[in-house]
């Protein structure tokens, strides 16, 4: 099984395969199309991560001790980034999620679309996922003890 870090390296390879920045964004659109749409009734304020341009609704749950992400956004670009995070983190050991350095945006031309505010939005989402993963690690540690 690939680790989150290995998946990220593969995704970076796929994104940068084309030198054309436009195609790199097209990749995000392709990823967006893989993400299930969230029913409107689940898009509630409590799970909203908001920045000045887009909205993200984020649920995190545990399946067999591993994190699973359920999320949606009103923008396709952000939906694409959510699918990438799902590819990297869903059903992964929580320790590997916590340890992974998510930097695919700054290592590709996607950085051109993510100014500091939008990067902050991404960082907030990744932060929530990692905190959730850490809580799973902590809980298991407690159970082991």
């Amino acid at each position: 099984m690939e680790t989150p870090q290995e998946i990220q390296e593969r995704i970076i390879g796929e994104i940068t395969q084309s030198g054309d920045p436009f195609d790199q964004f097209n990749y995000l659109l392709m990823k967006a199309s893989q993400l299930d749409e969230m029913p409107d009734e689940r898009k509630v304020e409590d799970v909203l991560v908001k920045d000045c341009q887009s909205q993200v609704w984020l649920y995190l749950r545990e399946v067999d001790g591993c994190p699973v992400i359920e999320a949606d956004s009103d923008t396709l670009m952000i939906r694409g980034t959510i699918q990438i995070l799902k590819d990297m983190f869903d059903h992964q050991p929580p320790e590997a999620v916590v340890a992974c350095d998510v930097d695919y945006i700054k290592r590709t031309d996607l950085a051109y679309a993510f100014d500091s505010k939008r990067v902050a939005g991404q960082v907030a989402i990744v932060g929530r996922i990692k905190r959730f993963a850490q809580s799973l690690v902590d809980r298991r540690g407690g159970a082991d003890a």
Binding site: P21, F22, F25, Q53, S54, D74, T75, L76, M77, I78, Y112, A113
Partner: peptide
């Protein structure tokens, strides 16, 4: 979404 429109148009 305007963010998607403006991002792709920029590229």
């Amino acid at each position: 979404h305007p963010f998607d429109i403006a991002t792709l148009a920029d590229k």
